[in-house]
Design a protein around this nucleic acid. Structure first.
Length: 563
DNA sequence: GCCGTTTTCGGCCCGACTGTTTTCAGTCG
């Protein structure tokens, strides 16, 4: 699959063109094409083979020709020409905060800055400060940008960001005369990783909110502070942008700052065609404001359904909304249980009872106890004798407690030789079997996972790609084949909610759903509080267009038992 | 470089904030 490579090439070309002062529209055309290719669910080579490149929005004659050349010859002459026209390391400097293409271009032309080393030198010797429009503060800001970049970590997992956002919102709520408070941006869209946090606060008196926010103890540095907007860094150098918005334009601002950028650009074009204009203050027909207090105003005025934030990526949701055909996304209240939790029996930190209590507190009807199997020595995996004992214990608890149905299960290892870690006889005695690859990541993984899916006792395939965010690419596996096997056998694919996993991700989920597969959300909780992370998996499911019928967690206990 | 039932040429989203200016350029989102 060459989608990522080609998307990356176009993005790189955009960077260089921007640096060379090319008109912004051309730069944007490359960026838009890059995003469109990244968002493809199909292999671009398939699309190319079927001569459908021009159907990709943002790909016209010119870019299609470049893609064609690359797929035919493994080479793109325009890419070489553009990228080789500037020193390779120069382009990377564009990702330094407060240093944009204009400044960098001048530094390159006048001071021959070609890499980070050079940049630091001209900062030190004062020659950068001699350039026009350069003052002490700009120099200082570029220094800070470099420091931030050298510390690394550009994005964090949604699982880290979300609790942080909730804490900030909790504090902001205490300010008097404050109305709606929402996270915006990638957090509201439930993107798997988050670059910064946007929070919108509804209030007429903005200064009090800005002042109070500025006094929060979490803040490590104030970046900017205006009348309606404040940017700060909080613990771990995460940027938080706070905006204070009056009531009558709050909806428009929420729409605007939720993004995504691609979604908004598309929406604006449609508005323009209809003789309207959208900005962060509202939607206007001529001089007349026709909406803006509620987010729904914007979509309604354009004659479309309100679009859930998780879908706002310009992946076809706008067309669906225009035709009133948006999926009815699965909601938190549809969820009847969690399939994948661990207890003290293996490597969890709580008893079965404690996990069940937490599930009941969440309003669930069932919980799947799925401790590790015998080969998982590192995780205190259960021998056949111990899991039989655990089944008896669960039966005993179920007779005592009617609040919640505890399902006896296992997270059984798919061994390197393709067998499962328990006998079929033993697996047959369990309510749920989650099969998981924990070793042999490069050994015939596709084959092993398909074999597991074909085992009649296996209910769910755990974390199907094995990726760990920021750490590990995942198994060498042909996921499309695995998904098709799951469709054939009625095996569900897991959406693992662990903050580092989020596996399957949104695109895979959408593909699986379209193929007719079922999804099962599991928190993989090793402690009761981690069961709260179900909403991460739910976010992924929603981003993947899942409806109630696609998600096993929405089944009642009885239907689930027969399933 | 893309796009089009108002256009095959002439548009392409736009405002806040900062910093360096003295009316605006650059950066960001």
């Amino acid at each position: 699959m060459k989608n990522a490579v080609i998307a990356e090439m176009f993005d790189r070309m955009a960077d260089v063109l921007e640096l060379k002062g090319e008109i912004s529209f051309k730069v944007n055309a490359y960026r838009r094409a890059s995003r469109a290719i990244q968002n493809l669910e199909e292999d671009i080579e398939t699309i190319w083979n079927e001569e459908r490149l021009h159907q990709i929005p943002g790909i016209g004659t010119g870019l299609a020709k470049k893609i064609d050349e690359y797929l035919r010859t493994d080479h793109m002459s325009k890419y070489d020409e553009i990228v080789q026209s500037v020193p390779p390391e120069l382009v990377d400097l564009l990702h330094i905060q407060n240093l944009g293409p204009k400044t960098l271009a001048v530094a390159y032309q006048k001071l021959h800055v070609e890499n980070l080393e050079d940049l630091k030198k001209v900062l030190e010797n004062g020659s950068l400060a001699q350039l026009p429009n350069m003052g002490e503060k700009k120099i200082e800001n570029i220094r800070k940008g470099i420091a931030l970049r050298e510390k690394g970590r550009e994005r964090i997992s949604l699982g880290i960001a979300l609790p942080l956002v909730e804490r900030l919102i909790h504090e902001l709520r205490k300010i008097p005369h404050v109305g709606r408070i929402y996270p915006a941006g990638s957090v509201r869209r439930m993107c798997e990783t988050v670059g910064d946090i946007d929070i919108l606060v509804e209030a007429e008196e903005s200064e009090r909110v800005i002042d109070t926010f500025g006094s929060f103890s979490e803040i490590t540095r104030m970046i900017s502070r205006g009348k309606t907007k404040s940017s700060v860094l909080i613990e771990g150098d995460l940027q938080v942008d706070l905006r204070v918005i009056p009531r009558d334009s709050f909806g428009a601002a929420l729409q605007y700052f939720t993004g995504s950028k691609a979604h908004n650009v598309r929406l604006r074009r449609i508005a323009k065609k209809q003789g309207c204009q959208i900005n962060e203050y509202g939607i206007f027909r001529g001089e007349k404001k026709i909406g803006g207090a509620k987010e729904e105003d914007i979509y309604e005025a354009l004659g479309m359904q309100w679009i859930p934030p998780e879908l706002r990526e310009d992946r076809g949701e706008i067309d669906l909304a225009m035709e009133s055909r948006l999926p009815d996304l699965v909601e938190l209240y549809d969820i009847n249980g969690d399939f994948h939790v661990h207890t003290r029996w293996s490597d969890g930190s709580a008893s079965i009872e404690k996990m069940a209590e937490k599930a009941a507190a969440l309003g669930y009807h069932f919980i799947g106890i799925c401790d590790h199997s015998q080969s998982a020595g590192y995780a205190n995996g259960l021998t056949p004798e111990r899991i039989l004992e655990q089944i008896r214990e669960i039966e005993r608890l179920n007779t005592q407690n009617n609040d919640i149905c505890i399902l006896a299960g296992t997270e059984v290892d798919i061994l390197a030789d393709g067998r499962l870690d328990y006998s079929d006889d033993l697996l047959a005695r369990l309510n749920i079997v989650i099969a998981a690859v924990h070793s042999g990541f490069k050994k015939r993984v596709t084959e092993r996972m398909i074999a597991a899916a074909r085992n009649p006792h296996v209910t769910i395939l755990a974390h199907p790609t094995g990726r760990l965010l920021f750490q590990r690419e995942g198994y060498i596996v042909d996921l499309e084949q695995v998904i098709r096997a799951c469709v054939d056998t009625g095996t569900a694919l897991e959406i693992n909610c662990n903050e580092e996993r989020l596996d399957l991700n949104d695109r895979h989920i959408r593909f699986a759903k379209e193929q007719g597969a079922k999804l099962a959300i599991g928190t993989d909780a090793h402690h009761p509080h981690q069961m709260d992370y179900l909403r991460l998996g739910l976010g992924m499911a929603r981003r993947g267009c899942c409806e109630k019928k696609d998600v096993l967690n929405c089944l009642s206990v009885n239907t689930l038992r027969s399933h």
